[in-house]
Nucleic acid binder design. Structure first.
Lengths: 183, 183
DNA sequence: TATTGTTATACTCTATAACTATA
DNA sequence: TATAGTTATAGAGTATAACAATA
């Protein structure tokens, strides 16, 4: 036995092979051949998070957002404004997870559709806030229950007892990211 | 399934408020105001997966991929070819998680840099395979250990006992997605 | 000088669909 | 007819950097 399997001393649980996705079993085997030491558990966590996130975004765009002609980012922007109320642009960009340049374009689109309104600040005229219009609020109130219903279907893929531990793990990751630059 | 609070029978632990990220506490409070029933656990899982995935991709692009002038997708493509060997284009696209149109462009770029080579099949001339060149293999062999070291730093954010349960949960999601279309 | 939002450039990726060459 | 890969179009997003207005 070579590679990852060989490192596993007795008592070390390691990743249970029968829990792995088929592709992961092949990868473990391939790394044995390649002869490089690899933290397979870490590989698995990172690549599967990315796969899950991509699949979720695609599902939401097709099932809920597409019919309303909303991009994922436009939806998140509306949602943030709904939950938090009117916000200054740079905070809104951070919360929606986009750059300020992207936010300008998203706000242009949403404003053109009458869903949000920009407002210049009188005290500091560099600042801009954005908030939902009545029409924007109507839209997100109507749309979010459908979005959340899909979220519920996705979360239902998790076994009942693992779900809380899973949510906790996610929070540990989100709290710890981004990592400091030094490798 | 209805609001998270409503589902919680006695003895059911539910999400512990002190485990939530600060922003999540505010969201729970806001939904109480808004007066809509929301599956908060599902909301939390989906939004945090997406946050984590975005942060991870950005971190990798800056710390490991940027200096090598590789996009995330280009890196994944090289990695897949390294692990699985020469592959037909449509399988490579599926494995890398991109459309065939995107793969054409990625292969153009990687081929121009001499990292992969296309090969037409003689038996069925519609088919195309791609494989690493010696230079491409040298690159990924040198690069992946650094990538995996960052994956390990990220996985280290997870508490030791939660890590296996977390990885299992991820696999449940990846296995179950994409969801069937019917809402 | 520093900051906010806007604009511009160049690139990556997406979905959709037409196109070619094969089969 | 159907399939594989390419090409084309339009849109969304990124990073980076320059810019105008304001502080």
């Amino acid at each position: 036995m070579t590679g990852a399997a060989a490192e596993r001393a007795e008592g070390d649980t390691g990743p249970r092979l029968d829990d792995l996705i088929e592709a992961e079993r092949d990868i473990v085997a391939r790394f044995d051949d390649v002869g490089l030491e690899v933290d397979f558990g870490a590989l698995s966590v990172v690549s599967n998070i990315y796969r899950a996130a991509s699949a979720i975004r695609r599902h939401m765009e097709q099932s809920v957002l597409g019919p309303e002609q909303l991009s994922w980012t436009a939806f998140v922007t509306l949602w943030v404004l709904w939950i938090w109320g009117e916000m200054e642009a740079r905070h809104l960009a951070a919360e929606a997870g986009v750059t300020k340049g992207t936010l300008t374009g998203v706000l242009d689109t949403l404003e053109r559709r009458g869903l949000v309104a920009r407002r210049r600040h009188d005290d500091d005229r560099r600042l801009l806030s954005a908030g939902l219009t009545a029409s924007g609020e109507e839209l997100i109130r109507r749309l979010y229950p459908r979005f959340n219903a899909q979220e519920a279907r996705i979360a239902a893929l998790l076994s009942q007892d693992g779900r809380d531990a899973f949510a906790s793990g996610l929070r540990e990751l989100v709290r710890g990211l981004p990592l400091e630059d030094p490798s």
